[in-house]
Design a protein around this nucleic acid. Structure first.
Length: 748
DNA sequence: GAGCACTGC
């Protein structure tokens, strides 16, 4: 390859890296980054180029073999081997052979004894008395499958001694001693029973993932009411000391894991276009390595990249005809319909090779057998939250070292693997953070704060978070909850707030439900809330059928009813077809999302009863429905400007109606929106006309903007000091015309 | 006239 190609490519790639970093920083999430990092990176990279030129001797030979096939190739440098953990030593081959003749149960028992943790068995078991053990997992599937495996090993029926508990599904009984559950489920149980009386041991698995729920549970010090409660934290990271310190120097057991060694290769120079580089690398592997020795997994950031990569790959392999063995392309991302997802689990036919194009879903959530090669461009999409503007956005961001290693490890599950990183060793060591920023530091905390308040935690600023979120984010959350009427001026939970905390939803959605009591339309409102909380994945929009999908969607907008009512219409229409799958296909709607909406709706219906809100329907009149929506979403108000754009009220900025909205042509003077998304512009999504509210709702906001409406948290001096700053923002929540209209009616 | 990573309750 001519050097010039790399140099040029290098510049572009650095640009790409720095653009991603810049956006990340602008979002407010990356403040801690060194502003000179890029320049240093560039300099170091130049030095690196000089020193990293030795190395891949075998590459030359390989490249000669297929020079005729490709014009472009990519130089990789084998930099390191991630050790496998003596897999073969622990399970001698002969014992595996022998076990083949034994019964499945005996084999399981034998396998079990070879696990490294077996040595700690007695010690851990001493902790167990006559209560049950709870073990949390970050994902539902994991909780279910681990429970199934353990019940098999113990030779008991799932749901008896060993069970699991996840949202919508409780597979436990009175007999259950060992309960696998999602961490969110344990948090919900904790809300109802803070002493966790039913448990003697709680084990938090995969704690390094640092989910919102585990971070809250840790901060709550779940064992504080229970000196006898044993807490086990299991984490795959090397910074066990951090966990140990946090839990008052708790003892650390280092238990080796099991994995085959993985060779890590870096590019010699940064790549101009990682998508193209990934495809070239995949083809290089496919052509030079014997078919049948293993499949390829490439990590992309999203659906769009995956679809593009799929097209390019098809095009290029078609051009090569029979010169190369068959390459089966398998896209996988969460929004892909389930039937199409199944393809990646089909065994690869003899003589062919599979290339899996995946999002982060393949990093932790699902494992694919037979992967030997991983190609890692080093990016992912990550949600970040800017507490200054209150904006959430999804940004393409460089991954962390931990994430890069997790990805590499995906190639070493069934045998020794290789990972090709499409960035330099320098990029890895200097540009990537060690760990992914925990979710609690990059999310809107409204729901977290409501949860903590409902547990009677008032001093949020001094709450013992393992990694505290920005104080500004806490303040924003408090403000919002106050504006919604969930907190009083002393920062205490109100009756509405207590009701809201019962719902596993964003507080604005919970408030909308609480308000539906007054407007007598709780039936419709919980359908809307369920549809909104399923999110944007309701519509399936494949690249080749976008027009059809869009036409189908617009059918629900007839009459300019607004997007919330359109969602209600979708849900009701589906219900009328008796939840027909066929109906979903015809309307380009994801069956999975609709089923999820139904599950959520059922749960909400149950919770309505719990907070004593009657299920009432008022489907003939949209007015009360829209009022209830406004009662929850008034903090997301925007007013039309002369040119058809909108100005948000709370943090004044110019935003636009998303073109997929039913109101895109209508342009109401005032709107409320469900969310803002930053893509090519700032777009409002799921929006509706704003309605006037009843007088008592308005009064709350008048107080809020007035001098007596100062927001205080009796236990938190920091908040007090910042009251003046809150106030300016608060007055904008309760902005003029919204109140004007109501004040007029009050004066009359 | 657009384009949404992944979880969880």
């Amino acid at each position: 390859m001519p050097e010039a190609y790399y140099q040029d490519g290098g510049v572009n790639q650095e640009k790409r890296f720095s653009v991603a970093m810049q956006r990340y920083r602008d979002s407010g999430a990356g403040d801690k980054m060194n502003p000179f990092a890029e320049q240093e990176a560039w300099e170091e990279h130049q030095i690196g180029k000089a020193t990293l030129k030795y190395g891949s001797k075998d590459r030359k030979q390989n490249s000669d073999d297929f020079q005729f096939v490709f014009e472009d190739q990519i130089d990789f440098i084998k930099a390191s081997v991630m050790d496998g953990v003596n897999f073969e030593d622990e399970v001698p081959a002969e014992s595996l052979d022998k076990s083949m003749e034994k019964s499945a149960f005996e084999k399981l028992q034998e396998d079990r004894k070879t696990l490294p943790i077996y040595a700690y068995r007695d010690e851990l078991l001493q902790a167990v008395d006559n209560h049950q053990i709870g073990c949390t997992q970050p994902r539902r599937v994991a909780a279910m499958s681990v429970a199934a495996r353990v019940s098999q090993e113990m030779g008991v029926k799932l749901g008896h001694e060993v069970g699991y508990s996840i949202r919508f599904e409780d597979c436990t009984s009175e007999k259950t001693l060992l309960k696998y559950m999602t961490d969110g489920m344990l948090l919900r149980e904790f809300l109802g029973e803070p002493d966790l009386a039913g448990y003697s041991v709680v084990m938090v698995d995969e704690a390094h993932e640092r989910t919102l729920s585990t971070d809250i549970l840790f901060g709550l010090d779940i064992a504080r009411f229970r000196p006898d409660l044993k807490l086990l934290i299991s984490s795959a990271t090397l910074d066990a000391e951090k966990f140990s310190d946090y839990f008052d120097s708790a003892p650390i057991f280092k238990i080796p894991g099991r994995r085959f060694p993985v060779e890590v290769h870096y590019t010699k120079a940064p790549e101009a276009d990682y998508l193209d580089a990934a495809i070239v690398t995949a083809l290089q592997i496919h052509v030079t390595q014997p078919p049948g020795d293993g499949d390829i997994l490439i990590f992309f950031t999203g659906q769009e990249e995956i679809e593009t990569a799929e097209e390019i790959l098809k095009h290029r392999t078609r051009g090569l005809g029979t010169k190369i063995p068959e390459l089966i392309i398998c896209p996988i991302y969460a929004n892909l319909p389930t039937e199409l997802q199944a393809k990646i689990f089909e065994p690869t036919p003899e003589g062919a090779r599979k290339v899996v194009l995946a999002t982060n879903i393949a990093e932790t959530s699902l494992t694919i057998d037979g992967i030997k090669y991983v190609i890692d461009p080093g990016f992912c999409k990550m949600k970040s939250y800017n507490p200054r503007t209150g904006m959430e956005s999804l940004l393409v961001t460089p991954i962390s070292k931990a994430s890069a290693n997790q990805r590499a490890g995906r190639s070493g599950r069934t045998g020794p693997g290789k990972c090709f990183r499409l960035y330099t060793a320098y990029n890895y060591y200097s540009d990537l953070d060690d760990n992914t920023v925990p979710e609690i530091q990059r999310t809107n905390l409204a729901n977290v704060v409501l949860t903590l308040k409902s547990l009677g935690i008032h001093d949020l600023l001094n709450f013992d978070f393992m990694d505290p979120p920005p104080a500004e984010a806490l303040l924003k959350a408090l403000e919002l909850l106050f504006a919604l009427g969930a907190l009083n001026k002393l920062g205490e939970l109100t009756k509405v707030g207590r009701r809201m905390a019962e719902f596993p939803l964003d507080p604005m959605l919970s408030k909308m439900i609480a308000a539906s009591e007054k407007y007598q339309c709780s039936d419709e409102i919980i359908s809307i809330a369920a549809m909104l909380s399923v999110g944007s994945s309701i519509f399936y929009r494949p690249k080749d059928k976008q027009v059809h999908a869009d036409t189908a969607r617009m059918n629900f907008h007839t009459g300019n009813v607004g997007d919330h009512v359109a969602l209600l219409k979708i849900y009701s229409s589906w219900k009328e077809t008796n939840y027909s799958t066929q109906w979903c296909y015809e309307n380009y709607i994801q069956v999975r999302s609709m089923k999820r909406a139904r599950d959520i709706r059922d749960q909400l219906e149950g919770l309505l009863e719990r907070v004593e809100i009657e299920l009432m329907s008022n489907s003939n009149d949209l007015e009360p429905i829209k009022k209830a929506i406004t009662a929850g979403f008034f903090p997301h108000s925007a007013r039309m400007q002369k040119n058809g754009s909108y100005r948000t009220v709370k943090h004044p900025q110019t935003v636009y109606i998303h073109p997929t909205s039913g109101l895109a042509q209508v342009l109401p003077r005032w709107v409320i929106y469900h969310e803002l998304v930053l893509t090519t512009k700032e777009y409002m999504r799921q929006l509706d006309q704003r309605k006037c509210l009843a007088v008592q709702d308005a009064r709350l906001r008048i107080e809020l903007s007035g001098a007596e409406g100062r927001f205080r948290d009796a236990h938190c001096s920091w908040i007090k000091e910042n009251v003046s700053r809150c106030r300016t923002n608060d007055s904008r929540i309760a902005s003029e015309p919204f109140l004007e209209e109501e004040l007029v009616s009050v004066k009359r």
